[in-house]
């Protein structure tokens, strides 16, 4: 039961990683690509962590996965801001739709 549920969460997480990577390839500029990386991948990792926690069924492993998720989330959002800031101060103009 938990295994099936874990598999569903992990599969959804992988789908988000695929979508995030699609955004990284398809989006037109640095800023939009950062959106895909920070948001889709953070949610993807969260879902994979929930799936792994359900699979192992061990509270300590679940706690560890939760911490990993929080730490990766924190570093990904801080990095996204630093990259966007560096680009903006370097004069990188955002892409605009016609």
């Amino acid at each position: 039961m938990f295994d099936a549920l874990g598999l569903i969460f992990a599969a959804a997480g992988v789908a988000l990683f695929v979508a995030g990577t699609a955004g990284l390839l398809r989006f037109p500029d640095l800023y939009t690509r950062l959106h895909a990386l920070t948001k889709a991948d953070t949610l993807g990792l969260g879902l994979v962590c929930v799936g792994a926690a359900l699979h192992w069924g061990d509270p300590l492993i679940a706690l560890k996965l939760g911490l990993i998720w929080l730490l990766v989330m924190a570093s990904s959002t801080v990095l996204a801001h630093l990259i966007a800031r560096a680009a903006r101060r370097d004069g990188v103009r955002p892409w605009e739709a016609e």
Partner: peptide
């Protein structure tokens, strides 16, 4: 975060 990730994925 769930809404943000889902929206970014859909737009991507």
């Amino acid at each position: 975060m769930v809404l943000g990730g889902a929206q970014a994925a859909l737009i991507a």
